[in-house]
Amino acid sequence: MRALIIIDMQQGMAGPAAGVRNNPDAERHIAALLDAWRAAGAPVVHVRHMSRTPGSPFWPGQPGAEFQPRLAPLAHEHVVEKNVPDCFVNSGLERWLRVRGIDAVVLAGVSTNNSVEASARSAGNLGFATQVVADACYAYAKTDYAGVPRSADDVHWMALSNLDGEYAAIVDTAGLLATLED
């Protein structure tokens, strides 16, 4: 059985204040995946980052910590709260998946090089068949350690390259949705 895990699609990640990002269609692709999983009655997990830093937009009770309305969980869908990038650390997620016989996960969300990459590495290392949906994730522009500015696309594609074949299979929304119809 395969679960869809949507990572950090919170209000604090929406809008220009979050930074220069790539893939402006990511939310549309995530919504298509969510709709398909719901229609199939398949398991969905919503992950929310809750900061330990007072004043953070992701501090509990702040508007930024709330889910984006279009991608908000339904009452019966599982919600995981985390305070580090990796949604498997100190969250009970692995146990929740294993108890339900889920052995495969599909990851979407933000940011590709942070929470998505960290979670995909853990999922792969824990033995889950892991897929990351490239067009249902996005990243932000970032300056690398050598001081070279990198575009959001560069950061996104490098993070996916780090995962591909080692920890996860990289897929796109259309291809993944086609596998649900089989």
Rank of each mutant, 00 (worst) to 15 (best):
I7R: 02
D8K: 07
D8R: 07
M9F: 03
Q10S: 07
Q10E: 11
Q11R: 15
G12W: 03
G12Q: 06
M13V: 14
M13E: 08
M13C: 14
A14V: 14
A14L: 15
G15K: 09
P16A: 15
P16L: 11
A17F: 06
A17Q: 15
A18S: 12
A18F: 15
A18W: 12
G19W: 06
V20W: 02
R21I: 04
N22L: 01
N23C: 06
N23Q: 11
P24L: 03
A26K: 01
A26W: 03
A26V: 01
A26M: 13
R28N: 11
R28H: 13
R28V: 15
H29D: 10
H29Q: 15
I30S: 01
I30F: 02
A31S: 14
A31C: 10
A31W: 09
A32F: 07
A32I: 07
L33C: 11
L34K: 07
L34P: 02
D35I: 08
D35L: 10
W37G: 00
W37D: 00
R38G: 05
R38I: 08
R38W: 05
A39L: 08
A39H: 05
A39I: 00
A40S: 12
G41N: 05
G41T: 06
A42Y: 01
A42S: 13
P43M: 09
V44S: 01
V44P: 00
V44D: 03
V45F: 02
H46P: 02
R48S: 14
R48M: 06
R48W: 00
R48G: 09
H49S: 04
H49A: 10
H49V: 04
M50D: 11
M50F: 03
M50G: 04
S51I: 04
R52P: 00
R52G: 13
T53W: 09
T53A: 12
P54H: 07
P54I: 10
G55D: 05
G55I: 05
G55N: 05
